[in-house]
Each structure stands twice: as structure tokens, then as C-alpha cells.
Design a protein around this nucleic acid. Structure first.
Length: 225
DNA sequence: ATTTAGATCCTCT
DNA sequence: GAGGATCTAAATG
């Protein structure tokens, strides 16, 4: 079983929630495929999102994958040394994507590459890409089975925690929008400090996405454990 | 345990 | 020429 087109063909917030617990497959060679459980995601919801690379629907050479069809990869390079991996969703008129921030290695973890002394080599978007050898060569590729990279549905986490997105530009309401999602029980989550501690999303299905500043009315409970 | 500075270069203005 | 959806090591309390 792999993710069908409709799995990705939805808004970014829905996909970010849907990807928690899903399985990420990285194919290094024909029979060398590492699998990981996705535990942390961020939604970049559309052209109105001031923190998105596709803000104002402005096309550039870098972000062109975000304007492509649902289910392709968007891999970008940043800070002179790091790559980050996103799953494209939405449609060409509403460029949107989900950043994969952390995953738990499940199988063939020995294939992963990491920094010499990294304790949590797949916790954090750039660490994950380093461990999985993801770079711009994989930008825009369709995420389908036997590709270098694909995703299959998995068991959702028991609970979902939500927080502001990490490291996004300051100065707009989008900076603090609750668009980062993670499994509060996973030790592989990248950070839980300060504003990123998160709060429990009591009923994800009951909080449908509405375009605009919907998140300003937020009533989630504080986390514990 | 928490904070800070530096790395490092591609992309866009 | 400036800044970035980050990370690490070093310094500080």
C-alpha cells in the first residue's frame, strides 16, 4: 500500500496532520530502502501565508516545485549548508507544502548518514535530509513507490500536539500560527522548548481548515506528558 | 541547562 | 548585497 494521489491532494494543514505516523521510504539502492515513521510536520498553507516560500504566489526558480502537482517533493537549500524536504499539496493555484521536520528510524537505520557525533540524526529538517542524503537532486520528484523517496500511510499517533512553526520570519500573525504538528509521545521530535512545547489538539477532525486568519481563535489545552 | 556566535552559499532584490 | 522554514560548538550561569 502506498499513498494515492488523493492522499496528498488536500490542504496543507490536513496533510500535515495526515502525515504524522505515516512511513517515509528512502531508496538508496534497489534493495537498500530505509523506512522511518514521521513524527513532526509543519504546514505552509498557501500564498497568503507570510512565512511560506510561496507567499504572494510569487514564483521563483527555487520554489517552483510548490506550484506543481500534489505528491511531489520540494527540496530547498538554505543557510549555506542545509537542505529541507517538503511534500507538495494543494493545487497549482494555491501553492502549499508540508515540511517534514522529524522522523523515527524504523528499518535499515544503518544506511543513514549523520554528523559524526549527532545524537538524534533524524530530528530536525536539515538533520533528516543529511541522514537520508536528500538534496536538490530530489527536488520536484513524484513521491511514488520505488522512487528515491516515497510515503505510505501509517498508524496515526494517539495524540497530536500543535505549536507555532520553528524558525519562521517574525512580524506577522502567521509567525505564531499553530501550524506545527507532532507526536507528543515521540522522543524524536526536534524541539519542545519554550514556545515550541506545544499543546494537545483535542480533536483534529473537528478543526477544519479555513483560509485566512482562522487560527486567531484557538482554544487548545496545554500539554502534560 | 541555556544562550550565543559562527558557519557558509544559494537565491532573490 | 542581504538574508535565510538550521545546526553545532563554545561560553556562560
Amino acid at each position: 500500500m502506498h499513498a494515492t494521489k488523493s492522499f496528498f491532494d488536500t490542504d496543507a494543514r490536513t496533510l500535515a496532520l495526515r502525515l504524522l505516523g505515516a512511513t517515509l521510504h528512502r531508496r538508496f539502492a534497489p534493495r537498500r530502502i530505509a523506512t522511518l515513521r514521521i513524527v513532526e510536520t509543519e504546514a505552509y498553507v498557501g500564498p497568503e501565508d507570510a512565512c511560506s516560500h510561496a507567499r504572494n504566489a510569487k514564483r521563483t526558480e527555487r520554489n517552483r516545485a510548490m506550484f506543481g502537482p500534489p505528491g511531489i517533493a520540494y527540496v530547498y537549500f538554505t543557510y549555506g549548508m542545509h537542505h529541507c524536504f517538503n511534500v507538495v499539496c494543494g493545487n497549482p493555484d494555491r501553492p502549499a507544502a508540508v515540511l517534514i521536520r522529524a522522523a523515527e528510524p524504523l528499518r535499515l537505520a544503518h544506511l543513514l548518514r549523520s554528523a559524526p557525533h549527532a545524537k538524534a540524526p533524524t530530528s530536525g529538517p536539515a538533520r533528516l535530509c543529511r541522514a537520508l542524503d536528500i538534496d536538490r537532486r530530489l527536488d520536484s520528484i513524484p513521491l511514488r513507490p520505488c522512487a528515491p523517496l516515497w510515503i505510505s500511510p501509517g498508524e496515526p499517533p494517539r495524540r497530536v500536539a500543535v505549536s507555532a512553526r520553528v524558525g519562521v520570519s517574525q512580524g506577522s500573525a502567521w509567525t505564531t500560527a499553530p501550524l506545527r504538528f507532532f507526536d507528543p509521545e515521540s522522543p524524536w521530535v526536534s524541539t519542545r522548548r519554550g514556545p515550541y512545547a506545544g499543546s494537545i489538539l483535542s480533536d483534529p477532525a473537528a478543526r477544519p481548515y479555513h483560509p485566512g486568519l482562522w487560527f486567531l481563535r484557538s482554544g487548545d489545552r496545554p500539554t502534560e506528558g
